[in-house]
Computed example of a mutant assay.
Amino acid sequence: MGLTQMPPEVPVLIQEGALFVANHSGGKDSQAQLIALLNIIPASQLLVVHASLGRLEWPGALQLAQDQARAAGVPFIVARASKTLLEMVARRHETRPEVPSWPSASTRQCTSDLKRGPIQREVRRYAKANGFKTVVNCLGLRAQESPGRAKRQPFKKMSISNSVTTWYEWLPIHDWWVEEVFGCISSAGQRPHYAYSLGNERLSCVFCIMSSRNDLRIGAARHPELLAEYAALERRTGYTMHMSRIPIRQLTEIQEPAEALDGE
């Protein structure tokens, strides 16, 4: 299965010895992206990086990313923030109780502070230590996922470029459909994270501000103690975690079928 139409810059960057960084959440899109990248990028120019969210992410996500990188003979690093999402929310409530404590779709500090920032920090260290002057940051974002992601440029120069390192962003599987993603994983003889077999549509945090109700319910059923922590922090801050502004307990509540209720 091929990549999204390759930008003309990519073969040139490969030839010039750029470092291609495969961001890997442990989810299906990251997994398929790495499979596709391995078909065209020399392993010596590839780096797999996982932004660890600790116990707030699905168990096994880090291990899946690490195992896939190891099997391919590609270096793997973990980027960790100095705080967790729950700590960030609690701190924001303490310092600015008058504003919403949780991240939102428009102010996604969880992405910038817990993922993007730590990843860029670790990639800079790796690039400096290994003599790379050009970095191509590869993200498994697909147009099918949302209108916002559909509008993303598949390839662009990043604003964080400076006199030391030039950065590009590339979305190698931007035009893939979900069936292609799972097909790619299966064709490679691999399996996606077990959360998908439970019915999850996406994978990252067990409870994400942008998760579907389906995914939140699955997470609640598997991790009730974590659900209790989120609910307690909602009560403490007076703000809800989810972008729907519905309390997490209500979002994850399993409704009885109407016919069962009628029979009582």
Rank of each mutant, 00 (worst) to 15 (best):
P42H: 11
N39Q: 15
N137C: 09
E145A: 10
D113S: 11
I41G: 01
T240L: 12
C138L: 10
G26I: 01
M88T: 11
S197W: 11
Q31A: 13
P172F: 01
R96E: 15
F20E: 02
E234R: 08
Q153A: 13
A231T: 07
A220Q: 05
L203S: 00
K157W: 03
P42Q: 09
S186V: 00
T95E: 15
G73V: 02
T252K: 07
P257E: 09
V181M: 05
Q144D: 13
N130P: 03
Q45A: 08
S146M: 10
R116M: 14
V49N: 07
L64S: 00
P7C: 05
Q255C: 06
K83Y: 09
Q120I: 09
R213S: 09
I14Q: 10
I209A: 06
E180I: 00
P247G: 06
R91H: 10
L13I: 03
A22E: 04
C208K: 04
V206P: 01
F132Y: 15
R142T: 03
H223P: 08
V136L: 10
M6C: 09
P7A: 13
R70V: 01
G131P: 06
T166K: 07
S187W: 00
Q250A: 14
Q250G: 08
V89A: 13
P8K: 12
M88V: 02
L86G: 07
T240P: 05
A22N: 12
E169R: 12
C184D: 06
A188R: 03
W170G: 01
R55G: 04
Y126H: 06
W102M: 06
A188W: 02
K151Q: 12
H93F: 13
E264L: 15
E122H: 08
L53Q: 12
N39F: 08
L227C: 06
A90H: 12
S212F: 09
V181C: 07
A195Y: 05
A195V: 13
R91N: 12
R213A: 11
V206I: 15
G60H: 07
D29I: 05
E94V: 01
Q144W: 02
S104C: 06
D215Y: 07
S44M: 09
R235Q: 14
Q144N: 08
A231P: 04
L3Y: 03
Q250I: 08
E179W: 06
S212L: 15
F182E: 08
L198F: 11
T107M: 14
I254Y: 10
K156C: 14
H50Q: 04
I35H: 04
R213P: 00
S163L: 14
E225L: 12
R125Q: 11
A150S: 06
W102K: 05
S244A: 11
G73R: 04
A127T: 02
T107R: 14
A188M: 09
L19Y: 04
K133E: 14
